[in-house]
């Protein structure tokens, strides 16, 4: 039996890591008007933020189609997989999981299952990574699914965005949460949850400096076993977070946000994703 893990680009897992761990990556789509771009393949993070700053059209995003999912499954099957686990971006924030499920009956030759992580970025990605480790060690589809679900539930995210306008425009932040976080002189810290309204204001502070420190404080309330920092045009802030995390966890890796998430966060964001240690 050969088990392979598939996830989407919103997991923020870099291509190199995916390749190393044998994780398949399916791209979400970015639309500038009528022009459709495959996340990462047609536009990288630097190019995306350049275009975001200059293009008069505000971009939108979309899930991969069931057909694209069927292709992704087929390619893993052709590669020798007879079991596939798709570790999905938050099923309430994206239609990706629906496409993934609909595509299952379009292919044959493998047992396919899905996990809704109810997370995004590396809080989702870490579930895929842990599931891939199970796969690499000869684990079954059921074992990998159980691990992915457990890790996803345990993982957390906090994100500081320079502005909430992008989340608002993309419909990922509801009006009351937007109002709560968008007044002048306030720096909101965002959280992601399984229950509505999914993207929430976790807390509010006065300044960016305080926000970075508060984010680390909140994450390190418990002992943490793993963390990742993801930024979009916010390397300095990411490094500040890394520095603040040093006493708790050494040299936490910093990644570029994938463009499709950049659409909803805008430039100047930094996110901290972590896994509290099990008791």
């Amino acid at each position: 039996m050969t088990l392979r893990i598939l996830t989407d680009t919103a997991s923020d897992i870099p291509d190199s890591t995916a390749e190393e761990l044998g994780i398949g990556l399916i791209e979400l789509n970015i639309h500038f008007g009528d022009e459709m771009l495959k996340d990462r393949r047609d536009i990288d993070t630097r190019q995306f933020f350049e275009r975001l700053a200059t293009d008069s059209v505000h971009p939108a995003t979309s899930q991969p189609s069931p057909g694209e999912f069927a292709e992704a499954y087929q390619s893993l099957i052709d590669d020798g997989a007879d079991e596939i686990l798709f570790v999905s971006i938050h099923g309430s924030l994206s239609g990706t999981l629906d496409s993934a499920k609909q595509a299952i009956e379009l292919v044959s030759g493998a047992r396919i299952d899905t996990v809704d992580t109810h997370r995004v970025s590396f809080a989702q990605g870490v579930a895929a990574v842990r599931a891939a480790e199970i796969a690499k060690n000869g684990g079954t589809l059921e074992e990998a699914k159980a691990v992915a679900e457990e890790v996803a539930e345990r993982s957390n995210s906090l994100v500081i965005a320079d502005t909430l306008e992008y989340l608002k425009k993309g419909g990922r932040l509801n009006q009351s949460q937007y109002l709560l976080g968008s007044m002048m002189r306030v720096k909101p810290i965002l959280g992601v949850g399984a229950e509505p309204p999914y993207v929430t204001i976790a807390t509010r502070v006065r300044t960016l400096k305080k926000a970075l420190a508060t984010m680390v404080d909140m994450a390190t309330q418990q002992k943490i076993e793993w963390a990742a920092i993801v930024h979009g045009e916010g390397l300095e802030n990411a490094q500040a977070v890394q520095e603040l995390l040093q006493p708790h966890l050494h040299d936490v890796p910093i990644y570029d946000v994938t463009p499709v998430l950049g659409v909803h966060l805008g430039p100047g964001t930094v996110g901290l994703h972590w896994l509290p240690a099990k008791d």
Binding site: S176, L180, V186, I201, T203, R204, V205, R206
Partner: peptide
């Protein structure tokens, strides 16, 4: 300062 930490 306290109102800043308020959530509905």
């Amino acid at each position: 300062a306290a109102a800043l930490a308020y959530l509905p």
